[in-house]
């Protein structure tokens, strides 16, 4: 019973849209604001399957590929750097005394506020977009990993030493493996803001990408493209979220289970 409740708001939104779109289209069949599903499907189909007249490529896939590449590189770098820095901050109190205030301060800077600086420093090409995603997500990941590393009971480390572990083995056999699911979890949670940074930077300066296309189409009021794109981004975001969630549950069955 409860499970059938979830889809209801979706249905409701759909119905509201259809009614509104229908009403407007009856008044003006050329209305662009609330296109009919048929028009959206046609636009989406042509973007996905027909080569663009100017560039000769299929725009939806071109944009998706470009965006995902930026997102992937930015998030991977942020995850790797966040893991390494967070691990060291968590394990070495001296280092964290030195760097933690700085990392906290950096994490408070609204990344979009420094976007112009990134454009100036790194140019308007790929690098500045990747760096924006990095800057926006890296402090959060670092912080989460640091806290997770600190939460590993001291007993575990002493125990590992009595089992013959070296300092290095404690780090990469005991601490690191326990941080990996937390890292993926944090990546999962920061993906939302990563999308935001991606689309914002693409909107301002790009030659392709999902955000670029949406903002380009805005000039032509092409809601029949914008809406499917927005829906597509939502689907992608949802899919990544779900994939990460199931991957974590499958790969790290012990993660997130309370002791006793």
């Amino acid at each position: 019973m409860r499970r059938t409740l979830g889809p209801l708001p979706f249905l409701l939104a759909l119905v509201v849209y259809l009614v509104a779109s229908n009403a407007r289209l009856r008044e003006n069949p050329l209305d662009k604001l609330l296109p009919s599903p048929v028009r959206m499907a046609a636009a989406a189909r042509s973007l996905a399957f027909e080569p663009d007249r100017r560039s000769g490529s299929r725009l939806l896939w071109l944009d998706t590929g470009a965006s995902l590449e930026r997102l992937g590189i930015g998030m991977s770098c942020a995850a790797l750097a966040g893991l390494l820095l967070g691990l060291n901050l968590g394990l070495f109190p001296g280092l964290s005394a030195l760097l933690q205030p700085f990392v906290t301060a950096v994490s408070i800077i609204p990344p979009l506020a420094v976007l112009p600086i990134l454009f100036i420093v790194f140019g308007v090409d790929e690098l500045s977009k990747v760096v924006l995603i990095f800057v926006g997500t890296f402090p959060v990941i670092t912080r989460e990993i640091m806290l997770a590393a600190r939460n590993i009971p001291r007993e575990q480390i002493v125990k590992a030493l009595t089992l013959g572990a070296t300092q290095l083995e404690v780090v990469y056999r005991i601490v690191l493996p326990q941080l990996l699911p937390r890292l993926l979890e944090t990546v999962r949670l920061t993906l939302g803001s990563a999308w935001l940074f991606l689309i914002a930077s693409e909107a301002i300066a790009a030659e392709n990408g999902l955000g670029y296309r949406i903002f380009l189409m805005r000039r032509y009021l092409a809601m029949d493209v914008i809406l499917p794109y927005a829906l597509w981004i939502t689907v992608l975001g949802f899919a990544f979220d779900l994939a990460l969630k199931y991957f974590i549950a499958w790969r790290y069955p012990w993660y997130g289970v309370e002791e006793e």
Partner: peptide
Amino acid sequence: GAPDPQRGIVFQKYSLFPH
């Protein structure tokens, strides 16, 4: 000196590695 395999330890909690 520091903990080493000459001594075994069983704590009340956290002796096992959850992963």
